[in-house]
Amino acid sequence: MPTHLIIHGRVQGVFYRDWTVSTARRLGVSGWVRNLPDGTVEAHLEGSPDAVEAMIGKMRDGPPAARVERIERSEAKAQGAEGFKRR
């Protein structure tokens, strides 16, 4: 199921987006990730339910320098994403 996320915490300037891209590709998740002006990170995930859940679980920790406080999650419409990109 396509999923939209907003990640709050210390997630900009800590390699979070690049880490997300490499982790998603390794798990077979498609979509994108980008920084937002308010200091959060936004992501769109598509893939098998198991792969998406695994990705979200990993995103709760992120790379070593990140500190994720919370993740807002909502259902999203499929965008037909191919691969995973940083925006």
Rank of each mutant, 00 (worst) to 15 (best):
V21A: 14
T20G: 02
R34I: 09
T40A: 12
P64D: 08
G28R: 06
P49Q: 13
V41K: 00
L5R: 01
K85T: 12
P49D: 15
M55D: 02
E75G: 09
M1Y: 06
N35H: 08
G80C: 08
G31N: 05
G28K: 02
G9M: 13
I6N: 05
T40G: 07
K85Y: 07
A81N: 05
L36G: 06
L5P: 03
T3H: 02
S74P: 07
S30D: 15
Q12F: 07
P2D: 04
A81S: 14
V52R: 00
I6P: 03
P49T: 07
V11L: 04
D50C: 03
P63N: 07
R67A: 06
H44I: 07
F15C: 11
L5A: 02
A66S: 15
V52G: 01
G39I: 10
A78P: 08
V14W: 01
I7C: 06
P64H: 08
G57D: 10
R67E: 13
R25A: 10
D38S: 12
V41T: 02
G13T: 11
A65S: 10
S22K: 15
R34T: 14
R70Y: 03
A43S: 14
A81Q: 08
G31W: 01
P37G: 04
S74Y: 03
R17M: 05
K85D: 14
A65K: 11
Q12D: 13
R70F: 09
V21N: 02
R87S: 09
L5I: 10
M59N: 02
T23P: 07
L36P: 03
H8R: 15
T20E: 04
H4N: 07
R25D: 14
A51W: 01
W32E: 05
V11I: 12
E82S: 08
A65Y: 10
L27C: 10
H4E: 12
G80K: 05
H4R: 12
R70S: 13
P63E: 05
R34N: 13
D18G: 11
G57V: 09
R87V: 10
K58I: 03
R10W: 06
T3R: 14
R25V: 12
V11K: 02
F15N: 14
S48E: 11
D50P: 04
V11D: 00
V29Y: 00
G83D: 06
V52W: 02
S74L: 09
G62C: 05
P37K: 03
Q12I: 08
E82C: 04
V29T: 03
H44L: 15
P2V: 01
M55G: 00
E53P: 03
